[in-house]
């Protein structure tokens, strides 16, 4: 840091928790960096792809009385489908795949701090696309399942439809959804990452065994809660856009 902002002895460098480039290449004349976010996201992707290939192969020759691995996979899939069923009612089966993938990806990303990787979700470039995907799904469902007139009435909602003064405010609140959704996930994971880096970087040998407790809170608990919240909010927005209740 150089300025002693963090009471460090000067050896502490903030690059231990910042995003930093590993190598750069030129892509059609643009300078493109491969950062440590890319590296950890690739590792997680390979892990998940291998797991799902093995799981798929296992379920191809599934037996009536499940073995150990088949049992684990069935438990996982039933859990994910159960969450979607509970939140979305009868429109649920179409969204099993998306929400399940989202859940597994965000969960593994959040707890990857335990494996020594920098969590990919602590990069706004990862969480913003997830928020935008939610935004697209919500508005696709809204246009698909509502008549245009009802949509217009809904967008002018507190005032009658011939007086669209409230329209811009409703549009702004629609745009705020993906931004707040992605910032919530990003800031939670980032704050955990930075706090762990500060504990390890500033306290040196004082931080021996007890950071494990902090890891349990910041990585496991907070990561799982934020995963659940992201998926739950996505499902709530989609099902309210579909108008399943009425």
């Amino acid at each position: 840091m150089g300025y002693g902002v963090l009471m460090s002895s000067g050896e502490f460098d903030s690059s231990s928790f910042m995003i930093h480039g590993i190598f750069k290449y030129s892509f059609f004349g643009h300078e493109v960096w491969i950062t440590n976010t890319h590296v950890s996201i690739l590792i997680i992707m390979i892990l998940l792809i291998v797991f799902s290939l093995v799981g798929g192969k296992c379920l191809k020759k599934a037996t009536m009385k499940p073995g150990k691995f088949q049992n684990v996979i069935e438990l996982l899939v039933e859990f994910l489908d159960g969450i979607v069923d509970k939140a979305m009612g009868k429109g649920a089966p179409k969204y099993y795949n998306y929400i399940g993938t989202l859940f597994v990806f965000i969960l593994v990303s959040n707890i990857s701090g335990l494996l020594g990787l920098r969590p990919p979700t602590a990069d706004y470039g990862v969480t913003l696309p997830l928020g935008i995907l939610t935004f697209i799904l919500v508005h696709y469902a809204e246009v698909r399942f509502n008549k245009p007139l009802d949509l217009w009435k809904d967008k002018c909602s507190p005032l009658p439809p011939w007086l669209p003064i409230w329209l811009p405010i409703n549009i702004i609140s629609d745009i705020a959804v993906p931004i707040s959704l992605s910032l919530r996930l990003f800031a939670n994971v980032l704050s955990g990452t930075i706090m762990m880096a500060l504990v390890y970087g500033l306290l040196k040998w004082v931080a021996v065994a007890w950071p494990a407790a902090l890891h349990v809170y910041f990585d496991l608990f907070s990561g799982a809660i934020q995963t659940y919240v992201f998926c739950m909010l996505t499902m709530t927005y989609i099902s309210s856009a579909r108008g399943d209740g009425n």
Partner: peptide
């Protein structure tokens, strides 16, 4: 409760983000 708390947490996180 957890869902509501996580939504309420957002404003605090904005402050944290500004500080960061």
């Amino acid at each position: 409760m957890l869902l509501g708390q996580a939504v309420a947490e957002t404003t605090g996180l904005y402050g944290l983000l500004v500080a960061m």
